[in-house]
Design a protein around this nucleic acid. Structure first.
Lengths: 335, 335
DNA sequence: GTGAAAGCGCTAACAG
DNA sequence: CTGTTAGCGCTTTCAC
């Protein structure tokens, strides 16, 4: 592997000249520049980013830690951040927590040890998990997306999860449903609590008292939602509608419904949080509450960039508005 | 940010002692070890991976370059590789090509400049694109997954794409379909050609001559498939079955079918390559040809690890068997 | 405009 | 067992 020194020797110039030509930091005469370029070409020189970063004290890497790459919400987030990073000349190191706060800690530490400039994180935990500024690792900037317990202590960009759930459940209520089965997310996460609270808000507003038996605790993943949904289907009387706390669980529920031969929306109305490409492909189309992922991602990334360029202002905490996307999976009660 | 030097000073030992305690490379007396650990704790010391990698000449990073993160096939690949990498103590830098061979080149170069130990790549191109050993960048090891034109010149792990397509189309043929609409992938990619060839194989075997008009060229993405499928639906007589070259295009087709009020499988049988979590959630369940992603990913990663540990043996080129997963989206003709 | 030289934080000989 | 030291490849003063 050719180094800068090799190039310098080959071109008969100093290391400095090579460095300046490549980085454009200082004026180099056209002639030397040409010689350098030629040597670079001939030797197949590739700059060693690591060495450069080490010297400059900051790296061209950013961390991106998400809860679950197989979830289209996170997937789209990855896509967005990836694009933004590329445009900013940054590369992204990916980490996956699986909603595990301990893994999250490890990953954060790992990112820091890779000297990433900053990290975008979808926190896995709840308020208690972040009480002690656990996210402040070294001088690494971190900004949170999606799950933003108040105690985070970092910039955060998240959906108004409470309102999102309320929107979904109110939609069901407006259609006349009274027994609404709920599959919520991993119990300890802030997002889950908020969505559960939004569910309550909706019931409250409609003057309906929530029943424990109708609330089932999933883990934001498909398999568990399948199980939860199957249980809900055993209830007598059976709920007439289902609210799922995220997209993957919606899929799990649809599978369960399919396997139990329950038709949507005739026998069961279904809606969830998180829109995704597959939702309109179902027959009937799936009614969901949409998150403005692109906006959240851009805002988060821009914020990170600002922090990196020295902005030490107040914490930025932005909440984004959900929107109900009505398709065909919720029908009026009785169907 | 505390450095090793700081820790050494704080603990009253030499840098070397700190280094060996942390890496476990040399024996350090229990007492010093304790002192070091304490200082590490107190100062909140984090090793600087970059410096370490620079010094050791190899990095704890691997590159992972995929065509499209929003596609569940690649998503699952990312998930698998991510897991394997973690267990091997490696972090992954993610890159996305969008099926663009030029971006692929840039990304490969980028990975190399980040001094990654190796890179796992889902190549975007075709045979001609790799004629000149374009994948051999510096001393970076690269191994290919998913798309493996013979000219690659690197280890490759891919589905038997030709057989996969044949399986799908033969299934349709066996059900009595004779006019089968096809939406293929990005025209220049090897995978696309193979799947098209498999389609031909199936027709040939059934003694049916292929008709150009029934073949539409998508780009492995949803939107374009929607368009292609809509066009196919205009044909008179209309095809009685559809074969999609991948999962995202299946979704696009299902959307088009839904929008045009065509019912599956009564009015249209549908099948594609790539299984994905959503497939069984549809009503009817989607019939697809499954790729053994986990196996392919593990094999690829293991191969990379072997290469990294000095195995300079022959190129490993492995082809994996597809399997037809019959669900409900294909019915006998006439429906 | 160009070169020499001093490190960035760490590892790994080599001495003691 | 522990300390000293010489770099890894690059950026960046500082002289010329």
């Amino acid at each position: 592997m050719a180094t800068m020194k090799d190039v310098a020797k080959d071109a008969g110039v100093s290391i400095f000249t090579v460095s300046s030509t490549l980085s454009g930091a200082a004026h180099v005469s056209a002639e030397l520049r040409a010689r350098v370029r030629e040597s670079v070409e001939r030797l197949g020189y590739e700059p060693n980013t690591m060495a450069s970063n080490l010297k400059r004290g900051r790296s061209s890497l950013v961390g991106l830690i998400v809860s679950d790459v197989t979830n289209p919400f996170f997937t789209e987030l990855v896509e967005c951040i990836q694009n933004d990073a590329r445009q900013a000349g940054l590369s992204v190191i990916l980490g996956v927590t699986g909603y595990d706060v301990r893994r999250e800690s490890e990953l954060l530490r790992l990112m820091s040890s890779h000297q990433v400039a900053g990290t975008i994180l979808t926190p896995a935990g709840s308020e208690e998990d972040y009480s002690d500024g656990r996210l402040r690792i070294g001088r690494m900037k971190v900004v949170a997306v999606d799950n933003a317990p108040p105690s985070l202590g970092v910039d955060a960009f998240a959906l108004d999860n409470r309102l999102a759930a309320k929107l979904a459940v109110s939609h069901l209520l407006d259609l006349g449903h009274r027994r609404i089965g709920v599959v919520s997310g991993v119990p300890h996460q802030y997002v889950t609590r908020e969505r559960l609270a939004g569910h309550q808000d909706a019931l409250m507003q409609a003057g309906i008292r929530p029943r424990r038996g109708l609330i089932s605790h999933g883990d934001f993943r498909l398999e568990d939602a399948y199980r939860c949904c199957s249980q809900l289907l055993q209830m007598k009387p059976r709920p007439s509608a289902l609210f799922l706390a995220n997209n993957l669980m919606l899929i799990g529920a649809m599978r369960a419904l399919a396997d139990h031969g329950v038709s949507v929306p005739d026998e069961m109305s279904v809606c969830s949080i998180d829109d995704f490409p597959w939702a309109p492909a179902f027959q009937p189309g799936l009614t969901v509450v949409r998150q403005p992922i692109l906006e959240m991602a851009s805002a988060a990334f821009q914020c990170l960039i600002n922090r990196l360029s020295g902005n030490d202002g107040e914490l930025e905490q932005r909440v984004f508005a959900p929107s109900l996307v009505v398709r065909g999976s919720c029908a009026a009660y009785p169907a």
